[in-house]
Amino acid sequence: MSPKKMPRLHLFEIEDFPWYPAVIREGQTDFLRFMMQTFDVFRAVIPHLREAQQKSDRHHLVDFCSGGGGSMLLIRKHLKQDSKTPFRATLSDLYPNIKAFEYVQKASNGDIDFKTTPVDAANPPADTPQGFWTIFNGFHHFRPAQAQQILATAVERKTPIGIFEPIDKSLFQIIINTIVLLVLMLVLTPFVRPFKWSRLLFTYLVPVIPLCTIWDGFVSVLRLYTPKDLRQMVSAIPETEAYEWKIGKARHMFGTVIYLIGYSKPAKLPM
């Protein structure tokens, strides 16, 4: 089924509920971090992100909806390969996975730090660093009005923003997010770090983590915003013409990344 025929349905994702046990939510986000690192899913958008950083001259990545933080480790690896600018990033989440954030901070040799208190991307604190705002694999969690408000807030604060979703809106993606993901969870969970006995317990003996991850993965596809949806959002934002918007899909060996990148247009020199 193509994106034109698949409407956006904002069904519930279990990990969004505040009552959801932290040990299960962290089991999900830890596994997704591991998958992001293993398959390097965001490498296809690195050229777009690097170009936007250079044109906006903003190099501190301020990440919302960070989950287990694994996406930023990948971004760091690629951006540090051929850049003379020191890498710096800050992770945040509405339900911060502190142990995972500490693991990422250590793995990055301190290049990546984090917020310990909850941060809502739909209502970022006034003291949130301008930097370069990013959301990896999290924009679909927001309803259309909230999603558009996130973009509008970035424009209002003259802050560059990048949205990256490592999935496509298709029947094939639903199959990947259910059958294939389940098999990978059952095979790869013992290799996820940092090691937790609770992760094994709730994967194999009481399989709550796989079942909830499969449901949330299925719903993620239905919630996904297509490039057409994203273009409609930015067209309705006040002062959107002051921003350079790049929206599209970047393909890699394992699938597609839908992306939106926006940053202020350079000021025109007087004639």
Rank of each mutant, 00 (worst) to 15 (best):
L91N: 02
S92L: 01
D93G: 08
L94A: 11
L94M: 13
Y95N: 09
Y95M: 07
P96I: 05
P96M: 03
N97R: 05
K99I: 07
K99D: 13
K99Q: 14
A100G: 05
F101D: 02
E102W: 01
E102A: 02
E102R: 11
Y103L: 06
V104L: 05
Q105R: 13
Q105I: 04
K106I: 00
A107E: 15
A107G: 10
N109F: 05
N109E: 14
N109G: 11
G110I: 07
G110H: 14
I112L: 09
I112N: 00
D113S: 14
D113G: 14
T116E: 12
P118V: 04
V119H: 04
V119R: 12
D120Q: 09
A121Y: 00
A121D: 07
A121L: 00
A122V: 11
A122G: 15
N123M: 10
N123D: 14
P124F: 11
P125R: 15
A126K: 15
D127M: 07
D127A: 14
T128A: 13
P129E: 13
Q130T: 06
G131D: 04
F132D: 02
T134S: 14
I135F: 02
I135A: 00
I135D: 01
I135C: 03
F136D: 07
F136V: 00
F136W: 12
F136L: 06
N137V: 01
N137T: 08
G138W: 03
F139W: 14
H140I: 00
H140S: 06
H141W: 01
F142R: 08
F142H: 04
F142V: 06
R143L: 13
R143H: 11
P144L: 06
P144E: 09
A145Y: 11
A145F: 13
A145H: 13
Q146N: 10
A147G: 08
Q149V: 01
A152I: 00
A152S: 08
A154M: 05
V155N: 11
V155T: 12
V155R: 11
V155F: 06
